[in-house]
């Protein structure tokens, strides 16, 4: 290779983005790594520059993209925002990035999408990338992710090669979603309850594997037939839904967990009630319930994917097995919990 690759990781200060940065820098011949994120979240002398900036600001994005050979776009707002913010950041922001890549002549754009762009609670076994987008998305996050993914993929060509990756159930030490949700639930005393009979399979993906997939996508994108495609990324180890919480709770020291089983039918009913309440109260007060009908459906239906395409085309294979990923995650939360308890004691 004549010229050293130069990567820009947008959202590189976040949970996934940071692991992409670290894996890139740990590689045998590391490329230049730049980060664009709203706030500087860590210091790493090997990072060329940590640029603070907003992806909805074309000037900032254009400056950051200038001279890069690869842009990896992992930034998004996930939950707790009003609808217009999702569209502004997740959709408009992505559009801004695509435009900047074109303008600055960046040849490669990797976009972090989500497996939920095709999922809204249905029973899904061995789903493939041929499955259509949802007609009705479960929430605005997914709707905007799907819209942005379509934008990214349709922008492929004319000097810009794009790929969209769809990880399912990302978790890892300190994630803000999956394992944090379980940790918080346990703290609230919800380690006692489970919905359904734990007979359905669910895909999880350890963060390092997702990061690795991004790097592989960037490395393989210019081979024929790779760009313009979407790929599911999982740990390729679907497990019965409640076994993962069970493992984490046990590692955190909870015993006899999930002993109270709420039947699926009752769970769906309660979820519907909550949904109705949220809808009714919407004009008065915004509620973000955790117990929704959608969540009950996700938990009590199969949701796992076939990742043959990522394996065959990108050469992807999960480096960190599920159990090892869970072990590392549990170690993190155990330490977090011990620290929290120590702080409380003082």
């Amino acid at each position: 290779m004549a010229k050293q690759e130069s990567y820009l990781i947008i959202g590189g200060g976040g949970f996934l983005g940071k692991r992409i940065v670290e894996l890139l820098l740990e590689s045998p011949s590391p490329p230049e790594v730049y980060i664009l994120d709203l706030r500087k979240t860590f210091d790493n002398p090997r990072v060329k520059e940590f640029i603070e900036g907003d992806i909805t600001d074309p000037v900032a994005v254009n400056n950051a993209c200038k001279g890069r050979t690869v842009v990896i776009h992992t930034a998004a707002v996930i939950e707790g925002f009003p609808t217009p913010v999702y569209w502004k950041v997740n959709y408009e922001g992505t559009k801004t990035i695509i435009d900047a890549c074109r303008k600055q002549g960046v040849p490669t754009l990797i976009y972090t999408s989500s497996a939920s762009v095709t999922y809204n609670g249905q029973d899904l076994r061995n789903g493939t990338e041929k499955d259509p987008y949802c007609e009705i998305h479960m929430d605005t996050y997914n709707e905007t992710k799907a819209a942005a993914e379509q934008l990214v993929l349709s922008s492929n060509g004319g000097g810009l090669a794009t790929i969209s990756l769809r990880p399912a159930g990302i978790f890892g030490p300190g994630d803000n979603n999956a394992s944090k949700g379980l940790y918080d639930a346990a703290k609230k005393g919800n380690w006692k309850f489970m919905i359904g009979d734990n007979s359905t399979l669910f895909d999880w993906t350890y963060v390092d594997n997702v990061a690795q997939a991004h790097i592989l996508a960037a490395q393989n994108i210019h081979r024929p037939g790779v760009s313009g495609e979407a790929f599911y990324i999982t740990n390729d180890t679907p497990t019965f839904f409640w076994d993962v919480p069970k493992y984490l709770y046990n590692e955190l020291g909870y015993r006899n967990t999930l002993h109270t089983r709420i039947p699926r039918s009752l769970g769906l009913l309660l979820g519907s009630v909550v949904d109705a309440l949220v809808a009714i109260l919407k004009p008065i007060r915004k509620i973000n319930p955790t117990f929704t009908k959608f969540r009950v459906k996700v938990i009590t239906n199969n949701r796992y994917l076939n990742i043959a395409k990522a394996k065959d085309v990108l050469g992807y294979s999960p480096m960190i097995p599920l159990e090892e990923g869970l072990r590392r995650t549990a170690v993190h939360w155990k330490a977090f919990d011990d620290a929290a308890k120590a702080a409380e004691a003082n």
Binding site: G181, N190, L268, L269, S272, V273, F291
Partner: peptide
């Protein structure tokens, strides 16, 4: 269809919503 069911259950819902709902996840 479930929406209809849900509306019918709003009364119970109000009682349950007063902190009695297990908030799984």
């Amino acid at each position: 269809f479930d929406w209809v069911v849900a509306v019918g259950l709003v009364v119970i819902a109000c009682a349950l919503a007063m902190g009695m709902l297990p908030t799984v996840l």
